[in-house]
Each structure stands twice: as C-alpha cells, then as structure tokens.
Simulated assay, not measured.
Amino acid sequence: MTILVTGATGTVGRLVVDELVQAGHQVRALTRNPSHASEVLPAGVEVVAGDLADPDSLVQAFDGVTAAHLITFAGDDYAPLSRGDEIVELVVKAGVRRVTVLGGRADGPLEQALAAATEQATGLEWTLLEPVEFMSNTLRWWAGSVKAHGVVREPFGDRLSALVHEADIAAVAAAVLTGEGHGGRTYTLTGPEALTTREKVRVLAEATGVGITFTELTEQEARTEWRSYGMGEETIEFLVQALGNTPEVGYTVVPTVEQVTGRPARSFAQWAAEHAAAFRP
C-alpha cells in the first residue's frame, strides 16, 4: 500500500517518512519544495509537489493512497487550512482508509470534515495526534544564544513542560497509519517526565559540556526582547499565555507513546545528547 506523508520535509514529517521506509512501506512524500526533499528524505521515496492550501494541486498525490498523514497548516507562517472539506473530499474519493492528523483540534475545518466523512460510513478511520511542546523547539529558541553567548534568556523559569521528542511523534503516527484499532481516537503525546525551564537548561548543559547560564526575564523584559526579534504582538501574546499559563495537559505525563509504539518515550536528556553539537560554540 502507498502511504502519503504531507509536510514530508518538516520536523516531524521527515521522521514519519523514515519510520515507514524502515518498516518496508511504500511512501509518497508531499512537499511544496521537491528540490529540497533529496537533502532530508531517504533515497527511493516518491516525492510529489503539492500545497495543502491548494487542494487542486493534491489530486495526483492522493491517487492510489490507502493511508495519509496530514498536517493542519500550510505555508511558513503556519496559517491554518481553510479548505479542509476539499481535502477530505479527495481523501474519500481516493479510497484512503486511515488518516492521522498532527497537532489539530476537534473544531478545525479539516477535522470537522473528517468527522463528517466518518459519520457518512465512508470506511475512513482517522486519529488526532496532539503532542505537547516539541523538544525540537529548544533548537529554535535556544541554539543561537547558547552557541554565541552561553546563555538562555526566558521568562517563567519554573514552568513545567512534559515536552515530547519529535521522533516519538513520528513513531506514533507510523504505528497508527499501519496498525488497527486507532480510528476515532485522540492521542495526547508527551515525553516521560515534566521538566522546568531551569531543569532543561541543566540537562542541556550536561549533554553539551558547555556552561550555560539561565537568565530569567520578567514578562515585560520578554515582551521587549521578542519585539526586538521582529515578533508580532499576536505571537508574543500567545507565548506569554503558553509559557506563563501552561495548561495542565502540557505538563501532565501520559503513557501514550509506549502504549502505541511498544517502547518508552525518549527523554529530553536523550534529545539533548543527539543535538549537542548544535549548541556548542
């Protein structure tokens, strides 16, 4: 069977492709930038061009596909999909039987369309994957300042997060796409422990062998610094709320990764060891 992976060159998508290829499945990788695919995807993967924001570009991508991994946004600005009903129409028409949706929410356009298709007895099963904070966010937010100055500057040093390894998200997606019994479920995905920001800095310092200083910013200092990076007010407000008022689901450890994949979730210490070079001067 052919499994379609959308966002195939992204943080999670490329790892979903890896998992499926290693398990011997035929994979079709959808990307807006096929020329970049050869740099991050295994040899032999079928790469097709397409944009989830433009369902007309997806017709050939779904041809002959029996399972699909979908994301809920399009473009570098992570804008949510607005034409979810058209995508699901293609899914149903192609005869896709299993779908995973990464990082969605029950009231999103794509998710609503999938729910409606399920109610119409189309034979489609779909599963919502809801990871908490990605461990890979550490690269995005900290690598530059640690590499250049040996410092992490953030507010809310005692906030807890049950952050999850991106490879575990991919492993769950692959297991759901190729296994039975997951239809209609929502899987919250976490790592094996909840860590404070201070603890994350300590773990990262141990993994890299670099002395890393944590400077705790006040909320106002954080807002000012984020503005200096060119962040918009909407993004800044989101960060303040997400970091300052992390919902319980964000710091509550659940065993979903092990239940679905059969092996324990990876720790942040393991992630830090794998990416230590990116933080060293």
Rank of each mutant, 00 (worst) to 15 (best):
Y78A: 03
Y78D: 02
A79Y: 00
A79F: 01
A79I: 01
A79Q: 13
P80E: 02
L81G: 04
L81A: 01
S82N: 08
S82K: 07
R83K: 12
R83L: 13
G84D: 12
G84C: 10
G84N: 09
G84T: 03
D85T: 01
D85N: 04
E86A: 10
E86R: 03
E86D: 15
I87F: 11
V88P: 02
V88D: 10
E89R: 10
E89V: 00
E89W: 03
L90M: 06
V91I: 15
V91W: 11
V91Q: 13
V91F: 12
V91M: 15
V92S: 12
K93L: 15
A94N: 08
A94W: 02
A94R: 01
V96F: 04
V96N: 05
V96T: 05
R97E: 14
R97K: 15
R98M: 02
R98H: 09
R98A: 06
R98K: 13
V99N: 07
V99F: 07
V99H: 05
T100M: 04
T100P: 15
T100S: 13
V101H: 11
V101Q: 10
V101K: 11
L102M: 10
L102Y: 10
G103F: 00
G103P: 15
G104M: 02
G104T: 05
R105W: 08
R105C: 00
R105Q: 09
A106F: 08
A106W: 06
A106R: 14
A106M: 09
G108S: 14
G108Y: 00
P109W: 01
P109S: 13
P109C: 03
L110F: 00
L110N: 04
E111Q: 13
Q112Y: 03
Q112W: 02
Q112L: 14
Q112V: 12
Q112I: 07
A113N: 04
L114A: 06
A115P: 01
A115V: 08
A115M: 12
A115H: 14
A116T: 09
A116R: 15
A117Y: 01
A117M: 04
T118E: 14
T118F: 03
T118G: 14
E119M: 11
E119F: 03
E119L: 12
Q120P: 00
Q120M: 09
Q120K: 15
Q120T: 01
A121P: 00
A121D: 14
A121W: 00
A121M: 08
T122K: 13
T122R: 13
G123L: 11
G123H: 10
G123I: 07
L124A: 05
L124Y: 07
E125Y: 06
E125T: 10
W126N: 10
W126H: 13
T127Y: 03
T127R: 02
T127G: 11
L128S: 15
L128I: 05
L128K: 11
L128T: 06
L129R: 10
L129T: 13
P131F: 01
P131L: 01
P131A: 03
V132L: 02
F134A: 01
F134N: 09
M135C: 12
M135R: 07
M135H: 12
M135W: 02
M135D: 08
S136A: 06
N137W: 10
N137T: 13
T138F: 08
T138C: 08
